[in-house]
Design a protein around this nucleic acid. Structure first.
Length: 816
RNA sequence: GGGCGCAUAGCUCAGUGGUAGAGCACUCGCCUUACAAGCGAGGGGUCACUGGUUCGAACCCAGUUGCGCCCACCA
């Protein structure tokens, strides 16, 4: 049913955006999922929130664009295809670069992008005609354009640096692709040199001592002052290495002396630079020792104990090796321990870009929700290292730089032909995946061309994403967006006006979902069993700005029940001949109950509009849930029953109209959150075409009809009294254990002069006291015993006090 | 090592100066003619701890304890 409904929406073109249509624009680009990915709860949350925003704007009369697409996901995708090849006993090198890339495209065509199909199951109202892929021709042109521009501006450079290297993926990684985890290691103390010329250094990575080219001590450390400038003998190799004084060394840590391995440690590299030390590379790209000698050919983790054993044999290990907890970096893609590696790579000089990215948030051109997330953002953009953008992969945007036979370096812009002549070759590396995703807000709209889409939909209205990629992605889109659009005025150069951050999806006990823990929930399973609406409502209901969302089967069951409740309420309305009036029912003929529920509808509508402004999805859901269930179903529908069954045909007619009007508006308000069930019910109730393009009951886009019906405080106060009174009667019946149909004792039968055999009796009795337009002053009397309780509803009823009086009176009545 | 956040009912969480809330779970009573995926009525909390500000503190301030997250080039 949902699938058919979705297909119908798409066929009718309801999700398409026409940049030439009148009205204000509203645009969200989807955070592009990996082409290798499939829909998990995190996506489901993200997409639910975006879809709700988009659907509401569409109903409000905005020209809405929700643009879908995928990321080519360099390492991840290459790994997938390489694994496939491995099954056939092949490596990418067996195919060669061109054939391998061709193979990846083939894989993409056959099995990539399953997530796109899954998005349809969720009901995502994206414009499929604008689907993009980061490796598309157009987007690749955007990549090359901005690379060239950065290169010409001196913001991209090539340098030999220590970078994070994954010995399994065989590529450089940026800082954010490294995940740190505390792990147990051993701190080993090694004595270098002998006698007076000896010094003890401590290390957790003994194997790197093969590449040591110095020992460093603090300049002010008296213990080692005599050694500075002299040489010590490096054990095992016998090389003599200098002792240098460097302020970076912490005299308090360990022995206060540090071994220096410039080629295998970022700190040591800097020390090496300051003291002009040679860099000795001892490992190849797979982490295998290449230094000639005993350890040649050993993996880095085999070499460590071997080196330690050899040192121990020579009596070089001093003191106890002691356990030491320290942070170890892992490849975020495959988990392999990252190896710092000296190599020639391309970098983006981020300082000026990051400064601009920080300022855009600082001066309010981009608003973060929640606002306190800005602190983290500033911490990051204000202290960002240069970004290593080259990857030793084949799948991705190739670096558009050519090297000539005479050492010339030429960066090509789009369309420029490769340099002619012999000896020119292109840089073999590709760009970090995040380089192209950083362009996503405008590359998808046609940049660098001046397209209608770009003019209309940039800046994007809002970016919706998890706080976990605030740094990875958001900050980079800010940097590149502001840079690419520098010719615009600052206010419209930003990639988006606002960033709405949500949290992680967690399990019922607030634990992070992970495959290893086995507590993941598949959104598609929930969609199958509970429906897309229930799944969406569960997620939206837990989503407060920046907050994590705990979900469980209990929650989705509750959401499913809510959808079911709506279903039944609508059924009730249809069975009772509800009809949707053209306009809000005129006040003149309304009962107090009618006036009350219409007033509440107006209030909730305004409340929901306000909450949408702050991306308060949890509160939007709570407001609508309680309005629909507690007020509409539990009270208004019950009150309506009495009227519909009553003698007053005019009053019944009015109720039918109010019922129709009320549900029509309620379903529209709920549609952005639960599109399928509301479409089903709304079309049945109103005979309308589709609720997708029905007018939003609250605020509208400028130019469209607006105007909010007023609330009715008097009616709300009156109904409040009525509810309190009915509740008192119910509580009394429950406390006394009265069965249905069993009338309350004579002592309580005075309300409206009718015996109260049921709750509905009480309602009917009270309702009769309230003719349209009349005042409302119910009186509870106990005529049999001559007791009367008068409830003046102009003042708030102290129900507890009234209850005590009733019980006391009853007890007295029984005694007699 | 630096930064940020959290601690409220059995569970997951709202609640930023004025009588402690929701959903689920639990207890009791109901197949009442939209819905038992439901209806009605209940029980349940020293708001982590200590001190301070205030007429008044879950809320503001200081400290303590416990937990979580992010960042990180001290071997």
């Amino acid at each position: 049913m949902e699938t058919r409904r979705y297909q119908d929406w798409v066929t009718r073109g309801l999700f398409g955006a026409d940049p030439d249509a009148p009205g204000p624009a509203y645009c969200i680009v989807i955070p592009p999922p990996n082409v290798t990915g499939s829909l998990h709860m995190g996506h489901a949350l993200d997409h639910t929130l975006m879809d709700a925003l988009i659907r509401r704007r569409r109903m409000q009369g905005y020209v809405t664009l929700w643009l879908p697409g995928m990321d080519h996901a360099g390492i991840a995708t290459q790994n997938v295809v390489e694994r496939e090849l491995a099954k056939q006993g092949l490596s990418r090198h067996d195919l060669g670069r061109e054939a391998f890339v061709e193979r990846v495209w083939q894989w993409k065509a056959e099995s990539g992008g399953t997530i796109l199909g899954q998005m349809r199951r969720l009901g995502d109202s994206v414009d499929w005609s604008r689907e993009r892929f980061t490796m598309d021709e157009g987007l690749s042109r955007a990549v090359q354009t901005i690379f060239k521009r950065l290169f010409d501006d001196g913001l991209i450079y090539r340098a030999e640096r220590i970078i994070n290297w994954c010995p399994r993926c065989l590529t450089a990684l940026s800082d954010i692709e490294v995940e740190h985890a505390d792990e147990d290691g051993e701190l080993i103390s090694i004595r270098y040199g002998d006698g007076d010329d000896s010094v003890v250094v401590a290390t957790t990575r003994a194997e790197t001592m093969l590449g040591d080219t110095a020992v460093a001590v603090h300049p002010d450390d008296p213990r080692y002052a005599h050694l500075v400038g002299r040489d010590v003998e490096l054990p095992l190799s016998g090389r003599r290495i200098p002792v240098v004084a460097d302020p970076h060394v912490d005299p308090e840590f360990g022995t206060g002396a540090v071994k220096v391995t410039p080629a295998h440690d970022p700190d040591d590299f800097e020390i090496g630079r300051r003291h002009n030390l040679t860099s000795l590379t001892i490992m190849d790209e797979r982490g295998v020792i290449t230094r000639p000698g005993l350890f040649e050919g050993l993996d880095r983790f085999e070499a460590r104990p071997a080196v330690v054993a050899a040192l121990r044999e020579q009596g070089r290990i001093v003191a106890e090796t002691r356990p030491y907890l320290h942070a170890v970096g892992h490849c975020s893609r495959c988990g392999t321990i990252v190896e710092p590696r000296l190599s020639l790579q391309w970098f983006v000089k981020v300082e000026p870009l990051a400064k601009a990215a920080g300022d855009a948030v600082r001066d309010g051109r981009v608003r973060l929700h929640p606002a306190d997330m800005a602190a983290r953002y500033f911490d990051w953009v204000d202290d960002m290292h240069d970004w290593c953008i080259s990857r030793q992969l084949w799948w991705g945007h190739r670096i558009p730089v050519w090297y000539g036979p005479g050492g010339e370096v030429r960066c090509l812009g789009p369309g420029e032909p490769p340099p002619g002549g012999d000896g020119w070759r292109q840089d073999p590396d590709v760009l970090d995946t995040w380089f192209s995703s950083a362009l996503w807000p405008f590359s998808t709209l046609g940049w660098p061309d001046d397209t209608a889409d770009l003019r209309r939909f940039y800046p994007n209205s809002v970016l919706v994403t998890g706080y976990d990629i605030l740094f990875f992605w958001v900050a980079r889109m800010m940097m590149f967006g502001l840079y690419a659009m520098a010719d615009r005025d600052p206010d419209s150069a930003v990639p988006f006006r606002a960033v709405a951050l949500h949290g992680l999806v967690r399990d019922a006990h607030g634990r992070k979902m992970s495959k290893s823990r086995g507590n993941t929930v598949d959104p598609l399973d929930w969609i199958d069993r509970f429906g897309a609406d229930a799944t969406r409502f569960t997620l939206a209901r837990g989503a407060s700005p920046g907050g994590d969302v705990s979900v469980s089967e209990e929650w989705v069951t509750g959401a499913r029940n809510f959808c079911n409740k709506l279903w039944n309420a609508t059924r009730f309305a249809l069975l009772n001949g509800a009809r949707v009036p053209d306009a809000r029912p005129a006040p003149g003929h309304l009962s107090v109950a009618d006036r009350w529920i219409l007033s509440r509808l107006a209030a909730v509508t305004a409340e929901v509009d306000g909450l949408y402004r702050g991306y308060e999805f949890a509160k939007i859901c709570a407001a609508l849930y309680h309005f629909a269930w507690d007020e509409v179903c539990d009270w208004y529908l019950e009150l309506a029953k009495a009227t519909l069954a009553g003698q007053d045909a005019a009053a019944a007619g009015t109720t039918r109209e109010v019922l129709g009007y009320l549900l029509d508006r309620l379903l529209r308000l709920l549609h952005p959150l639960i599109p399928f069930v509301t479409e089903e019910l709304w079309t049945a109730l109103t005979g309308g075409d589709t609720v997708v393009t029905a007018a939003w009951p609250g605020e509208r886009a400028a130019g469209a009809a607006a105007g909010q019906p007023p609330t009715d405080p008097a009616a709300e106060a009156e109904i409040g009294s009525l509810m309190a009174l009915v509740t008192e009667v119910r509580r009394f019946r429950s406390d006394q254990g009265l069965r249905p149909g069993q009338p309350v004792p004579a002592a309580l039968t005075g309300i409206g002069g009718t015996p109260l055999a049921s709750h509905e009796d009480a309602i009917r009795a009270l309702l009769r006291l309230t003719p349209a337009g009349a005042g409302f002053t119910p009186t509870a009397s106990l005529p049999a015993e001559g007791i009367t309780v008068e409830l003046d509803t102009a003042a708030a009823i102290d129900v507890a006090a009234e209850r005590r009086r009733l019980e006391k009176d009853l007890a007295a009545a029984r005694k007699e």
